[in-house]
């Protein structure tokens, strides 16, 4: 059966939300149903559109599920090698200090293979934003254990649940980063409820403002889900996130700049 296109505005409905038409491309997202990436992409690009900085923003994509972030974000972007997004972003920012530069990285990228780059970029106080998606799993490669995987959590490489004996502790890298003097702003947000999305947007807005004010490195962690990797429905995943992720990764500001 053919679907009938209906123009809701013509039908008399009020438009309360429109996607950021300039900064998000029409490309269909490749993410799994319920995944948080699409929402974070959208919120980021809403900010770029609302601030009118499409021509002043350069993004760096990671290796991981969001490797194709540049398919969706209609801005100049570079695709970095696994873990090196903050090194790439460092160079872009140094050469274009008047531009807004952000890296967009998952937990494997930012907190495992790229730990050295993450820490040293932050320690140099590079005026960039790191958007850090933490879903405690390697989604793209099929659900392996991540540095942020919770104790007891089952993944394809911790089939009996993560244990301290074999894999150590979940890495709270945002708290580590917050200790560095070059870092201006570290906050942990989520996208599992509409209210959480509103909070994320506020946090990202702060980060863009701090970058403009050259305050130092900003890191916005987004505790996200992975329904496919966690083997749950999107609804179950969001409930599980709140119950199991938040106790270890509580939402809220970890470090804010001195005004």
């Amino acid at each position: 059966m053919d679907t009938v296109q209906v123009d809701p505005i013509a039908e008399g409905l009020e438009c309360v939300y429109a996607r950021p038409a300039d900064t998000l491309t029409e490309t269909r997202l490749h993410y799994c149903p319920g995944c948080g990436h699409g929402v974070v992409h959208r919120v980021l690009m809403e900010i770029v559109e609302e601030l009118g900085i499409q021509d002043q923003t350069i993004g760096v994509a990671p290796v991981g599920c969001s490797v194709f972030a540049y398919h969706y974000m209609n801005i100049d972007m570079q695709e970095a090698a696994h873990g090196r997004a903050s090194a790439v972003a460092t160079a872009v920012k140094r050469l274009h200090p008047d531009r807004y530069v952000f890296s967009y990285q998952g937990d494997g990228d930012l907190a495992a293979i790229g730990t050295a780059e993450t820490i040293h970029t932050a320690n140099r106080g590079e005026n960039i934003l790191m958007v850090f998606i933490n879903n405690a799993i390697y989604g793209m490669t099929g659900g392996q254990m991540a540095p942020t995987t919770l104790l007891g959590m089952k993944t394809s490489t911790s089939p009996g649940g993560r244990t301290i004996e074999t894999s150590g502790y979940p890495l709270k890298i945002s708290e580590m980063i917050a200790l560095l003097p070059g870092v201006a702003y570290v906050t942990r947000q989520s996208v599992h409820t509409p209210n959480a999305v509103r909070h994320l947007k506020k946090a990202l807005l702060h980060a863009f403002r701090y970058q403009k004010e050259k305050k130092g490195t900003c890191l916005v962690e987004v505790v996200s889900n992975c329904p496919s990797g966690w083997k749950m429905t999107p609804g179950e995943a969001n409930e599980w996130l709140e119950k199991n992720m938040f106790p270890l990764y509580p939402p809220g500001d970890i470090k804010v700049p001195h005004s």
Partner: peptide, 15 residues
């Protein structure tokens, strides 16, 4: 490792 990826970023940024 960081150096060469900075080179990637800087070259990509046109310098």
């Amino acid at each position: 490792v960081a150096s060469i990826n900075m080179v990637y970023g800087g070259a990509g940024a046109g310098a």
